[in-house]
């Protein structure tokens, strides 16, 4: 099982957000601005890498009945560390992300990768897979964040994109806009994949 394939597959072919439609809660919730998206990507990447590493180490000794419970405790530990770190050193970002940082614990991607991959493969493969998945998650969130921020408030990472003539399209920042943008992105994503598959 070549490691490079594990690493690359998370970027596009098995992108956790667009292909497997996992981790949708943060994807919709925090992408109203790119800054929040970056904060969330960093947090998820840290937690995913950390927990994949630990889970792949301890996978042999955990009995089946408490498998999910133990993995979740490991993930929750990393999430709490991330949450406390953000609250201490980046108070603005922590306030903006609000309840969504603790909710990384139940983010379907992380538990999904632990159950589907880390609990069945070696340490190096799991960490690479986690890295690949984080990058895939990052790409998806940056895409969502940019589209919603540019359309919704006419800026990108705070910098003005359009002149003052552009009237921001408010719905993009609202929950409804998040659903629309995500739906259309998945549509585009599938169409591109289908086009590639055809050739």
């Amino acid at each position: 099982m070549n490691l490079l394939k594990e690493f690359i597959k998370g970027w596009w072919k098995e992108n956790p957000v667009f292909v497997m439609v996992l981790g949708t809660c943060p994807t919709l919730a925090v992408t109203n601005s790119v800054k929040n998206a970056i904060g969330m990507i960093a947090a998820v990447a840290f937690v995913l890498l950390g927990s994949s590493f630990i889970v792949s180490l301890i996978r042999k000794i955990v009995p089946n009945q408490v498998r999910i419970a133990t993995f979740i405790v490991v993930i929750a530990t990393f999430v709490t560390m991330a949450d406390r770190y953000l609250a201490a050193f980046y108070p603005q970002l922590s306030k903006a992300l609000g309840p969504y940082v603790p909710l990384i614990v139940v983010n379907c991607i992380i538990l999904g990768r632990q159950e589907a991959f880390a609990s069945k493969n070696g340490v190096l493969a799991s960490v690479l897979d986690a890295l690949g998945m984080s990058i895939g998650f990052g790409i998806a969130l940056m895409l969502m964040g940019s589209v919603r921020e540019i359309l919704g408030s006419g800026t990108w990472l705070g910098m003005k994109v359009f002149g003052s003539w552009y009237i921001p399209w408010q719905v993009m920042i609202l929950p409804a806009g998040a659903f629309f943008v995500f739906g259309f992105l998945i549509w585009g994503f599938n169409s591109i994949n289908k086009a590639f598959a055809k050739r």
């Binding site: 439609v21 996992l22 379907c108 159950e115 589907a116």
Partner: peptide, 8 residues
């Protein structure tokens, strides 16, 4: 099965 219980 991956056990993600995502319902997909």
């Amino acid at each position: 099965l991956p056990g993600v219980n995502c319902g997909a």
